[in-house]
Each structure stands twice: as C-alpha cells, then as structure tokens.
Design a protein around this nucleic acid. Structure first.
Lengths: 217, 217
DNA sequence: TAGATTGTTAATCGATTAACAATC
DNA sequence: TAGATTGTTAATCGATTAACAATC
C-alpha cells in the first residue's frame, strides 16, 4: 500500500494550531473573503507565513502557487481534518450547573458535535430537560449507550468523582472523554479511550502568573 | 541592582507546566508525602527528572542535594510563583448559565481567587444571588470597580459580545481578563491588560481529531 | 510571458534530555 | 565518609523560520 502524506503522524504542536486556523477561516468566510495568501493570513493571526504553509502541508497541498488559498476549500479541508463533519454524539456526565451550561451552549453545535443526553445521580435534576436534552439517571448510562451511538462523554461532575465518571464512560463504550474536572484521567487506565482535559484551573493560574509578572516588571 | 534568577524571564513552555506541578504537589500533601526526589515525581507525572529540575531551577534552588525536595516548601514556593496567596478578586461579566456555574464552582477558591460579583444586562437575573455573590446590572460595573478592588474580569457572555466585555473590563481598570468566549481578544487593543483565553472549543476539536486519528490507525 | 505565491528543503533557534560535578 | 540527589553545563532533538525552486 502506498504511504501518502495523510498517513504520517503530525506533531502535536501542529494539531494544537488547527482549531485556531479553523476559527480564522470561519471569520474570513463570514466576511466573504474567499481568497487569502499565507502572508495575509499570517499578518491577521500574528504568526509567520512559513509556519502556516508548513502546517497546512502536513495534510496536503491545499493552496495554489501564484494564487494563495481558496478560503472555502481550505475551511472545508480543516473541518474535515478536525472531524467537524463526523456528527459526533456526546453525553454529559454530571448535570450540575456546569453540565447544564455546556448542554445549552453553542460550543458543541458550532463544531458539529451533538449533545444527546445528560446524566446525574441527583433526583432533583433527573427528568428535567436542558435545551431539549433529557437529564437521565446515571444508572441508565450503559443502557442508553447500547441503544444510541455515543462517541464522547463530557465529565462535568465534581473532581472527586472524575475517575468514577471515566470508568462509567469507558464501560459504556465511548471513544473519547472531554474532561472538565481538575483531576487527570490516566491514559494508561483507559487505553481504548482518547482523553482531552480542559483544565480551566491551570488557565486561571497562568493568568494570575502573568498578572503578577507584569506588575513586577 | 543585582540581577537574580527571579528577574530573568522564564519561557512560556515552563510556565505552562507550573499549574500541573501545583496539582501534583497538592496531591502529595493530601497523601502526607512530605519529601520527594525529581525521579519519583518524574515517574508520577510521566515526564523526565531532568525537566523537573530544570523547570524548578528557573525560579531558584528549591531542593537539597542528596535529599530531594521538601513537598510543603516546594508547594509553597510554586503557590507563591503562581500568585495563589495574592487573594486576587474577580468579577464575572455575563451571568448566564456558564457565568453562574463558574461563580459557584471551586475553580476560584482552590487557587486563592475570590469572586466578588457578577454582572449582566438581563433584568431576569439582576438582583439574584449565586453562591452568596450578587448579580448586578452591567451599568454598575465602573462604579463597583471604583469602590472595590477588582483584579480579574471573567468573560462568560455570548461570543459576539466578547469585545464589548473586554472594553468594559478595560475601562473598569481590571488587570487581567479570563476569556471564556470563542473570540480572541486582541492583546494590542488592551496593552495594559493580561489576557488568558480558555478556548474550550479548541479543546473539543482536538479531542475529535484524536478520536478520528485513533480510528484511522 | 512575468508576477505571485506555494511547497519544500536547508538553516536557525529553542526546548528537552543526558551527564556529571557540586554538595548535602 | 559514602550514598544520594540536586543544580547546571553540554549534547541532542524537534520545531520554527528563512530561502528558493517549482509552478500556477
């Protein structure tokens, strides 16, 4: 079998930048800008044109010499790479304030992910609906996942139950975990799962660090 | 004036790792482990001992040859570096579901940051209290910040109002913005402010990418 | 064809790792 | 003192940038 560009692994550094390209390309589309050169985009995004060309070339030649990049086409390609068209289905484990906030936020729909249900163990919220999605009893999670395609489990339960949530998600057979707790989910414990942690707390601490170092200048 | 280690700028790569050290050290303290070598910590965290020693040495010699690191002391130092003891005060701009969720979450208190008020323009929520914090009318923001010390503004309003929120925060005189919208806040427009964006959506997209690339293996 | 801009190779820069002397 | 482990320098590795030939 021939090995083409798409088969080779792309470095994490590049992957991390893809969502940002996605955001900028969508902005350009919204502004009806249909053509852009790596230099123009580089100016907008405050990176080098070289980096943009290198990054995009990890996935294939999306541009055209002498012309630049067709924004619609490039946006489509990046969307494809990031799985925006896969229509991934997500469940939210932990229907407290954060879980409910996410359920009704555009963060999923904007990226082609759909929330199909929430789960909790609190009788006060079980049975409720958030943005048209039902909050079910946590004990129904396996049953639900057998009867519905579920790709992603979002962990929005208290940090002390993070691992319990991951176990539930794992045994329910999801492909990935989107972790909002402050605990790390050990990848070794869940070899079949892909895990992404938001770690909002880390972000807050970096903000505090930056504030302090600016003050001490 | 003598230039000491603390004055030299530390690379962003190192700073990004500090909150993780903070989390692991707190875990160790909770388990009453009061002494640790770079090798042991490296095993726990799945990084190299060399990296740990290099990272910590950017801020000073926190260890002791032949002994290792005193966990209590090191935790204190990292906390200090990250500003955990500064008692920073935060306001939340946008008291929708996400804003209210954050207001009542432990993400702030665990890191020594205090939420002192929320702001919104929706009469339905103005006057309400969340976890003991008042939701005030957005028009009172300047007045509030004049009469209270406010270091951080948390942006949890709809993305289309991100820049409006940043302007409000800026004119109210906060030091830093913690941005939860999907829009980027241009640092050039707010030279006096420190900005940290969570970009949850980017995290979700990377999760989707990883799921896809695992499937295509 | 001439001009523009990509795709790609080569050069540079920075970050990570290895090694070891200093020292508790 | 001997053993352990740091702090720090030197070597390696990877990521970013610069340069330019390919080509639209």
């Amino acid at each position: 079998m021939q090995k083409n560009k798409k088969d080779t692994t792309v470095s994490a550094a590049v992957i991390k930048r893809l969502p940002r390209y996605f955001r900028y390309l969508r902005m350009l589309l919204n502004e009806n800008i249909l053509r852009i050169s790596s230099n123009e985009l580089a100016d907008m995004m405050d990176v080098t044109a070289s980096q943009i060309r290198q990054d995009l070339n990890c996935f294939g030649g999306f541009g055209q010499q002498g012309y630049g990049y067709n924004v619609t086409y490039l946006y489509g390609k990046i969307s494809e790479i990031l799985g925006v068209n896969e229509n991934y289905q997500a469940i939210i484990i932990g229907a407290g304030r954060l879980g409910q906030a996410l359920a009704s936020s555009p963060v999923f729909t904007k990226r082609g992910v759909e929330v199909c249900a929430l789960f909790d163990n609190n009788p006060q919220v079980i049975g409720k609906e958030v943005d048209g999605k039902k909050i079910l009893d946590i004990s129904e999670i396996n049953n639900f996942c057998e009867n519905n395609i579920v790709d992603i489990a979002v962990l929005t339960l208290p940090s002390e139950f993070a691992d319990k949530g991951a176990q539930l998600a794992s045994s329910a057979g999801v492909k990935g975990i989107w972790n909002f707790t402050s605990k790390e989910i050990s990848a070794e414990n869940y070899p079949d799962l892909t895990i992404q942690s938001v770690h909002m707390g880390d972000s807050l601490m970096m903000l505090c660090y930056d504030i302090r170092s600016k003050e001490n200048e």
